[in-house]
Design a protein around this nucleic acid. Structure first.
Length: 961
RNA sequence: GCGGGGGUAGCCGAGCCGGCCAAAGGCGCGGGACUUAAGAUCCCGUUCUUAGUGAUUCAAGGGUUCGAAUCCCUUCCCCCGCACCA
């Protein structure tokens, strides 16, 4: 059987649209449910991993739809930033890699010349996302509401949002140290390198600049360890660097040329006044800050002019570089000669022990160097040595007695105190620098720059934080870990720079149009905009009509329709309709996004809703999904290299197999490694189900109604319950286990047991196929149609589980039969007997009676070993069984004590003799041996080995003859 | 460092508000059936022992309890976020 997935998918997607299933309109008679996935940034082609979260949203939406809700699932894209600009410019200049990338992912070649402009490339990808990904995957989203952050109407909404933030006094201005490209303005430094061509892993470090007086000028060293000043014994200068003199305030500083460029970005009134070769400074004496000692300037090659100021104060006791370089100077007479340094001077430089730490001696740097076997300056291992000594010193160290007023203090504390003291006395300044070279996409070097009038959204606002945090307690946030942790995240969230300058697409800041609103800040409140985009998209409202009073009215219900209509030209009727939409659909029930959103987007999303909207519009739920991670390699796949384009994967596996893979491969809250083999398994599973269902449909069953019917119907109603319960918590995986595994197994078991009546089979099929709809909608439709059921399964309502048709005893009976089969197999295997006949002995009546007594005692809570024994001994029948009776009583009392009354009741209530007699033909067939069933109480029982003694209710005895 | 999450059988992964858990399910593996054939399907098995019993298991070590994979403590190891990047 070959399934043509492509045409099935197309067929049903068209039918859904024809039936308007994609269009969501308010319906007061129904409960509403609005859900979204956090819209993706338009960065190019997506890969199979991205569909994971998206398809969850569609599956949940479909499930809600089928259980009575009016569902709204809108989609959009986020294009704010410079991604579009940079992509367009690469295409425009025919960058080979970029063109190749486009073609590899299926971009038509003749389309490429059109993509040289930012907006056209963004629109191109908007089309790819909507058509090749979301529609292709069968999503029932309301396509009419699609929006993109660069649309003029969206910009109007963002302007309004910022006006509201301002009204709430949440916009503030203050200085900010940003990573800035001289051409492009502020850029994001992060490992994804969206804005960068190099250095995404760089971190900002806060150095303390220490000033060493020499005559009337200062040598300025940068340090991360201001607490070590008591251990300063000399000063390092790189003799081969041409340093600069700069004037800063009334002082003259000496720093590296790179630092001379960086410092003015962060400090005012700095001027470069000339050069001074490093060589010239060797042999100087300068006055160390705080300790006010004269120390000599010595040569060191490790001073990198690119790091800090290119000058280094030397604390050999705690800095491995310093230690090893000092050894070098002391050992090597050539250095002394070359720079004319006296032996005396060199000898006077002696390390001073300043920090006491567990696991180290007086000189931690020396210890570490020895431990790591470092022998000369420049050894790459020094980086690691430095890190380790710094880390240990910071966490475990304590200042020694020599450190004046800081003696005895923990390093963690002394560091801040000493730094502050030196800042206060004017001996130090703060300077920020990046840990590695960072280069902008435009090619310019990125540095840290102070911006004085940077706008922030004040997410640190205490009242806002508390309100938001409080609201989260009532939200449905998944997973639980995030629900617990979100309060900490909200608390930790600080003021956030919300605007930037430079080469950047986005909405102009309404209060100062030199700024453009940055990417996180314009993507927090937008779900509510989907309720308005519908009308902007169909032209009923124009961007220029979307004024502050327009949004105030439709979103907040402020103002008077007549006045708003007069000022905007939007009819009162339309204003009323939009307002109604907003009231109907909001709040948002689920915002689903990848785990990267936990500390960025979700807090902003929450804060903005709480800050701007009335409480009844605050979000109700957040769901976080983890990733599908790389590694596309596959045992059988010949096409390796790079993530597979989504349309290709859809064609290869079928959309439903991929949807099922996402839903079932793991819990939403763990990362999954992409594996074609795994997807293939799900494809095969779907095909197994399809062929079984088609077999069932094709075979005109003439089985009369019987016990298997009530078993099958009971099972399926039980499954309905499980499905509903799982989906209550959006546990798609659990739901899929029931639908694609358990229900399949039940169907198979039913036909193995001889099948059910046509009525029962059709009823089960109806339930089953409907249950498949959320995750594998195309296949579900196909099966629904071939079974001859009416209409579209996507438009139907899932039946409620019917408790009256759930039969504990029917389900138990089949389990008993299965248990017996496996027991027989087990015994057969162990005993290595090949029996001519298998005899099953059903428990004698007195044993059942013991259990009945136990049940009674469970009901009134009096069950215990002595109590049950006593009770049994007062029953003549049982008592006559002697020791066997008291042993059984003991066993039953213990066993029942551990279990629920319900589970034991079915055991006692089952007529095993009738059940097994009815199943003996089946068992005989299955085991390929004649099976006889005997009642242990029967007169003249045939029982040559006395096996019947072992029979207990729920466990018939087995004899292999 | 700060904050958070984990370590379950060959693997992936449920269970983790204590008992019905030798521990779901899948994959893998072994055996069998079917078949011209299958990356197909269907059965059975997959800690050790054993006429269906019993023993020892859920990172390691302690503890609480009649009873612990599940609760508490300690140790070891792993992962994630820490910002202007959706």
């Amino acid at each position: 059987m070959e399934i043509d997935y492509g045409s099935i998918e197309k067929k049903w997607q068209t039918r859904w649209i024809e039936a308007d299933l994609d269009k969501s309109e308010p319906d007061e008679s129904k409960k509403k449910f609005m859900l979204i996935f956090a819209y993706p940034g338009v960065t190019g082609y997506l890969h199979v991993g991205h569909l994971r979260g998206y398809s969850y949203v569609d599956a949940i939406g479909r499930y809600k739809r089928m259980t009575g809700y009016n569902v709204l699932f809108p989609v959009g894209t986020h294009a704010t930033g410079n991604g579009g600009i940079s992509l367009a410019s690469k295409i425009a200049r025919k960058d080979e890699k970029t063109i190749d990338y486009l073609i590899r992912n299926g971009c038509p070649e003749d389309k490429i010349p059109e993509l040289g402009k930012p907006m056209s490339v963004i629109e191109f990808f908007n089309g790819v996302y909507v058509n090749d990904y979301w529609k292709r995957f069968g999503f029932l989203a309301d396509w009419r509401r699609f929006t993109c952050t660069l649309y003029p109407d969206y910009a109007k909404f963002i302007e309004w949002q910022f006006r509201k933030l301002n009204d709430a006094h949440l916009l503030i201005q203050k200085p900010y140290y940003a990573t800035v490209c001289p051409n492009c303005g502020p850029v994001a430094v992060d490992p994804s390198e969206t804005d960068l061509s190099k250095g995404g892993r760089a971190e900002t470090q806060e150095y303390t600049l220490l000033k060493f007086r020499h005559g009337d000028e200062f040598l300025v060293a940068a340090t991360l360890r201001p607490e070590t000043v008591y251990g300063q014994v000399c000063f390092w200068v790189n003799p081969s660097v041409e340093y600069r003199r700069i004037r800063k305030g009334g002082e003259v500083w000496i720093v590296s040329p790179q630092a001379a460029e960086k410092i003015p970005l962060q400090m005012d009134g700095v001027e470069d006044i000339g050069a001074i070769p490093g060589r010239e400074m060797i042999g100087w004496m300068c006055e160390a800050p705080m300790v006010h000692r004269e120390i000599p300037v010595l040569p060191a090659s490790f001073c990198d002019p690119d790091v800090g100021t290119g000058l280094v104060t030397s604390v050999p006791s705690d800095a491995p570089d310093d230690w090893i370089s000092l050894q070098e100077v002391k050992k090597d007479p050539k250095i002394r000669e070359e720079y004319g340094l006296s032996q005396e001077l060199i000898d006077s430089v002696v390390p001073i022990s300043i920090i006491e730490m567990k696991g180290y001696g007086d000189f931690p740097a020396e210890d570490m160097i020895k431990r790591m076997g470092i022998e000369r300056p420049g050894d790459p291992k020094l980086v690691e040595a430095k890190k380790q000594v710094y880390k240990d010193g910071y966490h475990m160290g304590r200042m020694k007695a020599i450190c004046g007023e800081y003696a005895g203090m923990r390093v963690e504390e002394a560091k801040d105190r000493m730094r502050q003291a030196m800042l206060d006395s004017g001996e130090a300044e703060v300077f920020r620098d990046l840990t590695e070279e960072v280069v902008c996409r435009c090619g310019a070097r990125v540095h840290i720059k102070r911006l004085d009038d940077q706008w922030f959204i004040n997410y640190a606002d205490q009242e806002l934080t508390e309100k938001t945090s409080e609201h989260c307690k009532s939200m449905d946030i998944n997973p639980q870990e995030y629900r617990d942790n979100v309060h900490a995240v909200l608390n930790w969230y600080r003021e956030r720079a919300c605007v930037r300058q430079g080469n950047w697409l986005g909405t102009r800041f309404p209060f100062d149009d030199k700024w453009v609103i940055e990417a996180i800040s314009d993507s927090t409140l937008y779900p509510v905009y989907y309720l308005i985009s519908l009308y902007a998209n169909d032209g009923r409202i124009k961007p220029e009509q979307m004024t502050e009073s327009f949004f105030d009215f439709v979103i907040l219900g402020k103002g008077d329709a007549k006045a708003v209509s007069a000022s905007t030209g939007v009819s009162e009727e339309l204003l009323g309709k939009i307002r109604k939409d907003v009231l109907y659909w909001y709040p948002l029930d689920i915002n689903l996004g990848g785990k990267e959103h936990m500390t960025v987007h979700f807090p902003g999303f929450l804060f903005n809703h709480v800050a701007i909207l009335p409480q009844e519009m605050w979000p109700r739920g957040i769901t976080v999904n983890w990733y599908v991670t790389g590694k596309t390699s596959d045992k059988r796949s010949k096409s390796k290299g790079g993530a597979q384009p989504i349309p290709g994967a859809a064609a290869k596996f079928g959309v439903d197999a991929m949807r099922l893979y996402y839903a079932h491969i793991a819990s939403m809250f763990v990362d999954v490694e992409w594996s074609e083999d795994a997807v293939m398994m799900y494809k095969q599973r779907i095909e197994r189900i399809v062929s079984l269902v088609q077999e069932i449909i094709a075979s005109e069953t003439d089985v009369p109604e019987g016990p298997m019917d009530s078993w099958l119907i009971s099972r399926f109603n039980t499954h309905l319950k499980e499905i509903r319960q799982a989906m209550e918590g959006y546990e798609l995986r659990q739901m899929c286990t029931v639908v694609y595994f358990d229900m399949l197994n039940d169907m198979k078991w039913s036909s193995r047991r001889g099948g059910c009546s046509a009525t029962a089979v059709r009823e089960a099929l109806r339930i089953w196929i409907q249950a498949m709809m959320p995750v594998t909608p195309h296949i579900a439709e196909e099966l629904w149609e071939s079974a001859g059921f009416e209409g579209l399964v996507s438009a139907r309502q899932l039946p409620e589980a019917d408790d009256s048709r759930i039969s504990g005893s029917a389900e138990y009976s089949e389990n008993l039969i299965r248990d017996i089969m496996s027991d027989i197999t087990e015994v057969r295997k162990i005993s290595k007997i090949d029996p001519k006949r298998i005899i099953l002995y059903v428990s004698p009546g007195w044993k059942k009676k013991v259990m009945e007594y136990a049940l009674e005692m469970m009901a009134d809570g009096s069950l215990s070993v002595p109590a049950l024994t006593k009770k049994c001994m007062s029953d003549g029948d049982i008592k006559s069984k002697g020791k066997a009776a008291s042993e059984l009583a003991k066993k039953v009392a213990i066993d029942f004590g551990r279990a629920s009354a319900e589970s034991k009741k079915v055991i006692v209530g089952t007529d095993e003799l009738a059940l097994l007699a009815g199943a003996s033909a089946f068992l005989g067939d299955e085991l390929k041996t004649e099976v006889s069933v005997f009642d242990s109480d029967a007169e003249g029982l045939y029982d040559p080995q006395g096996k019947s003694k072992a029979a207990v209710p729920g466990r018939p005895a087995i004899f292999l003859e």
